[in-house]
Simulated scan of single mutants.
Amino acid sequence: MSEAIRSVTRQEQKERTREAILASALELSQELGFAQVSIRQVTRHAGIVPAAFYRHFESMEQLGLTLVEQSFATLRRMIRDAQRDPHVLDNIIDESARVLVEAVRQNKAHFGFVSRERIGGSPVVREAIRHELDLFVSELAVVLARLPNIENWHSDDVRMASRLFVRNMVDHAEELAELPVSSDGLEHRIRERARREMRLIVIGFRDWHS
């Protein structure tokens, strides 16, 4: 086996170990809460020795920050992809509700993690989640600023509107993350409720004077 092939194999194994650690921490946090999960529990669950943990993460806090980053990555990517589609601006309410449901469906464990840790997690993880939500507010504000009735608003008011959207989405994402498997009817109802509430927010744009 050539050195190049051995290097690729080692890198693949390293990445598999890292993913096993993350997956184990995510699964254990569902049962115990992330703040109660120890390095020893994670490594036992992942089937590795404790020393292997430190080749990937300095501490459980760093592991928690990585889980937060992973949890928001898909949603942020889907929002950015949606921004490139001119159809989205014409149907922002329906598209926002659709993106929300699809993102939670693809990453239910991660959204469950955010839901649990956003309020009851460790201070470091809570702060990381708040930071990610603030970034989400800022990115969504860029999209909202292009809408009719809002394009001439002060930036503070655009962020206020964006924050209302994000709070609505977070609330319904937490509901969706708690649904059991095969709950299409309930999922549809939550999506419809999110759509109606966002529509109510948008209707208020016409009468708001920045």
Rank of each mutant, 00 (worst) to 15 (best):
A4R: 13
R6Q: 12
R6K: 14
S7A: 15
V8I: 13
V8P: 06
T9S: 15
Q13H: 01
T17Q: 12
A20T: 06
L22Y: 00
L26A: 00
Q30R: 13
E31M: 12
L32S: 15
L32H: 15
L32V: 11
A35Q: 11
Q36G: 09
S38Q: 01
S38I: 00
S38P: 05
I39A: 12
Q41H: 09
V42G: 03
R44G: 14
H45Q: 14
H45V: 00
A46G: 07
P50K: 05
A52T: 15
R55L: 14
F57C: 04
M60N: 03
E61S: 06
L63D: 04
T66K: 10
L67R: 11
V68Y: 07
E69Y: 03
E69S: 15
Q70S: 04
S71P: 14
S71H: 08
A73W: 02
M78V: 00
I79T: 14
R80W: 07
D81Y: 08
A82M: 11
R84V: 06
D85F: 07
H87T: 11
V88S: 13
L89Q: 06
D90F: 02
D90R: 05
D90Q: 13
I93E: 11
E95A: 15
E95M: 08
S96T: 12
S96D: 03
S96N: 04
S96A: 15
A97I: 04
A97E: 01
A97R: 01
L100V: 10
L100F: 00
E102N: 09
R105K: 03
N107A: 06
A109T: 07
F111P: 12
G112Q: 12
G112S: 07
V114D: 05
S115C: 10
E117C: 01
R118Y: 03
G120C: 01
G120W: 08
G121N: 03
S122H: 04
S122Y: 01
P123N: 05
V124C: 11
R126W: 01
R130P: 08
H131Q: 10
E132W: 02
E132P: 03
D134A: 10
L135V: 05
F136D: 02
V137L: 04
V137G: 02
S138N: 08
E139K: 06
L140K: 03
V142M: 08
V143T: 09
V143L: 12
V143C: 07
V143Y: 07
R146S: 06
P148A: 08
P148Q: 10
I150M: 10
S155Y: 10
D156N: 14
D157H: 12
D157V: 10
R159T: 03
R159G: 00
M160C: 11
A161W: 04
A161N: 05
F165H: 14
V166Q: 00
R167N: 13
V170L: 11
E175A: 13
E175Y: 04
E178Y: 02
L179V: 01
L179K: 07
P180F: 03
V181A: 14
S183T: 02
D184I: 00
G185D: 08
L186V: 05
H188C: 02
I190A: 00
R191S: 06
E192S: 13
E192V: 11
R193T: 15
R193W: 10
A194H: 10
R195I: 03
R195M: 04
E197G: 09
I201T: 09
I201N: 04
V202S: 04
I203D: 15
G204Y: 10
R206Y: 05
R206V: 09
W208C: 08
H209F: 08
S210Q: 00
